[in-house]
């Protein structure tokens, strides 16, 4: 690329940086314009308000027209706004980092995706997401399996008492332990999903992260069943005293909505 081209672009970028844009947090249903106070992204928390189009509203705050990095402060501000708005409204969360140039551009977004947003807002009406991660202590479970399973106990005994090669005994022991861990984890996960089925609308199972996690799920729960869901999770916690539960929420329904928008060049 010629040097001149680059200089022009840099100058343009400078000019844009001094401009104000609008950071978008989520979309809700509202015919009125609303204000949520100074909660937004920025070292001085920006005032959070709406940009309205018909009965839809985008929750926004003013921000410099720059790319926002997903730093701890920025990401938590994004979440804080969603959490606050969610207390009174059904939200469709925006993924992090969408900055529009003007109110008109946001109205154009709401207009273009009006049907999609309306449809999804109806489906998510009065529903929240909850996260449930389940972890176990693998070594503790292995000790339990050794106590309960006669074949495994016998093999373990052979390995520790045998004087010659224990290669095949160890191989078989490893295979049996792996299979037992697998089936036990599947059993726990199936039981937990089953126990939460009648207090939630939907669930999604994400890939567990790391060695200790056996379940990484999200549940969509109706507002009127929130307490029942909460009580059920606590019941489960009591019942499975060897498992560790990480229970979070309420969240906007991030795991249950995926609306992909793209820009097309208009001719």
């Amino acid at each position: 690329m010629p040097a001149g081209g680059r200089r022009t672009r840099t100058q343009a970028a400078h000019a844009e940086e001094s401009q104000e844009g609008k950071y978008v947090y989520c979309v809700i249903k509202s015919e009125r314009s609303l204000s949520f106070g100074p909660l937004g992204i920025g070292s001085e928390p920006a005032d959070v308000h709406t940009v309205n189009y018909r009965d839809l509203a985008a929750i926004v705050s003013n921000t410099p027209m720059v790319v926002q990095d997903p730093t701890r402060d920025n990401v938590l501000a994004h979440q804080r706004v969603n959490e606050t708005v969610m207390q009174q409204h059904t939200v469709i969360p925006m993924s992090f980092g969408s900055v529009f140039k003007t109110d008109d551009d946001i109205m154009e977004l709401l207009r273009s995706a009006y049907d999609a947003f309306t449809d999804v807002l109806n489906k998510m009406q009065d529903k929240f997401e909850f996260g449930l991660k389940v972890l176990w202590d693998r070594d503790q479970i292995i000790r339990e399996i050794e106590m309960e399973d006669e074949d495994i106990r016998r093999l373990k005994g052979e390995i520790s008492s045998q004087k010659g090669s224990t290669y095949f005994a160890r191989m078989q022991y490893g295979r049996l332990i792996d299979a037992a861990l697998q089936s036990r984890s599947e059993r726990y996960v199936a039981e937990i999903f089953h126990a939460l089925r009648d207090v939630s609308v939907a669930s999604r199972s994400n890939k567990p992260i790391g060695d200790r996690m056996i379940m990484n799920a999200a549940f969509l729960v109706s507002r009127n069943l929130e307490q029942a869901f909460d009580a059920r999770v606590k019941d489960i916690g009591q019942r499975y005293d060897k498992l560790t539960f990480k229970y979070t929420g309420p969240w906007p329904p991030y795991n249950f909505v995926n609306i992909r928008l793209k820009l097309e060049r208009a001719h």
Partner: peptide
């Protein structure tokens, strides 16, 4: 000049028990 187009909409309203999709 650009316009916004909905590329896809997915809502997940089923009760899924599958592990590690």
């Amino acid at each position: 000049e650009a316009r916004v187009v909905v590329a896809s909409i997915d809502t997940y309203l089923k009760y899924s028990e599958a592990v590690g999709q």
